[in-house]
Amino acid sequence: MANYKEDDDIQLSRQDGQDESQEAFLPPPATTQSEKQNGVSLIVAVIGFYFAISLSVVFLNKIIMSGSDFPYALFVTWYQLVVALVLLLIWAHLGKSYALFSIIPPFEFNPAIAKRVAPLTFVYVMMLALNNLCLKYVEVTFYQVARSLSINFTILFTYLILGKTTSAPALIACGIVFLGFAIGSYGEINFSWAGVIYGVGSSAFVALYGIYVQKTLPAVDNNQWKLLHYNTTLAIFFLFPLVLVSGELSDMLANSMDVMYRMNFWVLMTITGITGFGINIAMFLQVKYTSALTNTICGTAKACVQTILAAMIFQNPISSLNALGILLALFGSGYYGWVRYQERLAK
Score class of each variant (00 low, 15 high):
108 E>N: 10
62 K>E: 03
93 H>L: 09
81 L>N: 12
43 I>L: 14
49 F>S: 13
72 Y>Q: 05
59 F>Y: 12
116 R>G: 03
53 I>P: 01
86 V>M: 13
100 L>N: 03
119 P>S: 14
56 S>G: 14
96 K>Q: 11
89 L>K: 08
51 F>G: 04
97 S>C: 03
74 L>P: 00
44 V>W: 10
71 P>T: 00
102 S>F: 02
120 L>H: 09
54 S>N: 15
96 K>S: 03
76 V>M: 11
118 A>S: 14
103 I>P: 00
84 A>N: 05
120 L>T: 13
109 F>H: 10
112 A>D: 10
65 M>D: 01
63 I>M: 12
112 A>W: 07
64 I>T: 11
80 Q>N: 15
114 A>K: 12
59 F>R: 06
87 L>W: 06
91 W>A: 01
52 A>M: 14
76 V>C: 07
57 V>C: 15
113 I>G: 06
84 A>S: 15
46 V>G: 07
51 F>D: 03
97 S>Y: 13
93 H>Q: 14
101 F>Y: 12
79 Y>C: 06
36 K>A: 10
65 M>R: 00
119 P>L: 14
61 N>E: 05
93 H>A: 15
96 K>D: 03
44 V>S: 08
74 L>E: 01
45 A>W: 05
36 K>E: 12
92 A>G: 09
50 Y>N: 08
65 M>G: 09
118 A>L: 15
106 P>S: 10
96 K>P: 00
111 P>F: 08
57 V>N: 11
87 L>P: 02
110 N>A: 09
102 S>Y: 04
92 A>Q: 09
62 K>R: 14
63 I>H: 07
89 L>H: 05
96 K>N: 10
101 F>K: 01
116 R>D: 13
37 Q>R: 09
65 M>S: 11
88 L>F: 15
105 P>V: 02
101 F>S: 01
58 V>W: 04
60 L>P: 01
111 P>Q: 10
87 L>M: 14
41 S>V: 11
